[in-house]
Design a protein around this nucleic acid. Sequence first.
DNA 1: GTATATGATTGAAG
DNA 2: CTTCAATCATATAC
Length: 310
Amino acid sequence: MDEQTRLMHSHSGVGMAGHPGLPQHMQEGTGGSDGDGRKQDIGDILQQIMTITDQSLDEAQARKHALNCHRMKPALFNVLCEIKEKTVLSIRGAQEEEPPDPQLMRLDNMLLAEGVAGPEKGGGSAAAAAAAAASGGGSGPENSTEHSDYRTKLTQIRQIYHTELEKYEQACNEFTTHVMNLLREQSRTRPISPKEIERMVNIIHRKFSSIQMQLKQSTCEAVMILRSRFLDARRKRRNFNKQATEILNEYFYSHLSNPYPSEEAKEELGKKCAITVAQVSNWFGNKRIRYKKNIGGYPSPCYQSDRRIQ
DNA sequence: GTATATGATTGAAG
DNA sequence: CTTCAATCATATAC
């Protein structure tokens, strides 16, 4: 209650002349014979405040208590209020509301898409579906063990992510509470406005969310590595059968002047070879580049290998 | 074991 | 988007 009024001082009370809380000798502003004594007194108090951080904790605590009970304390407090009122404009420049960090949003979206963030079960199956989709169209049930392995590892990442996130959240709350208590405690000796507390809390939250961003960043990396380890089609590459290779080669060599099959031709070839259009495109891409690399030395027309000659 | 062949991926360029 | 070029990761030959 009393604290509340103290907190308000900074933006409600200017010019405290005649304040009922002030000691009598402060209210009559004439410098009497004890003027030097008073100056000395205030100087002592300020000196004590300045050196309080150099003292041990117990010592400081005792000193603070002594200061709080000092007869000059209310006067000093009011002076601080006034000084603050004059300087309060200077701290208003700080950015009040920054826009949401685009990188953070990107990370959040990705974690959500991978099923690391978001709801427990739904997230998992969504990730599995994404994995199935990424593994390259209808590849059949043959890789289900690999997928369950993938899911297990993803769940591990997910659990680590959530425990860490929770830990940071808790630490952030604890720290915020601590700082607020500290500020409240300090407001007994110096004026602290609610705005300042709010600013401090914002600073703390920003710091902690930057730590969380690092966590999200590394989680994303872990997921990407996992994906590339389990879902990269290169890992389970199979050669096309001889017949398919023959068909493709036949087309290639009979269109050697322009070995670029149209979309329809690719579909046709894909159908004949029982592979996808994308695979046909890959094959022709590889074939063209590897043929070109060899044609320079003209190795041996009998072998259709594209072996690089060096 | 190594060396080569080959399908897939990636990133730049058009 | 497609293609090229380099590269990866596996398959196959040796």
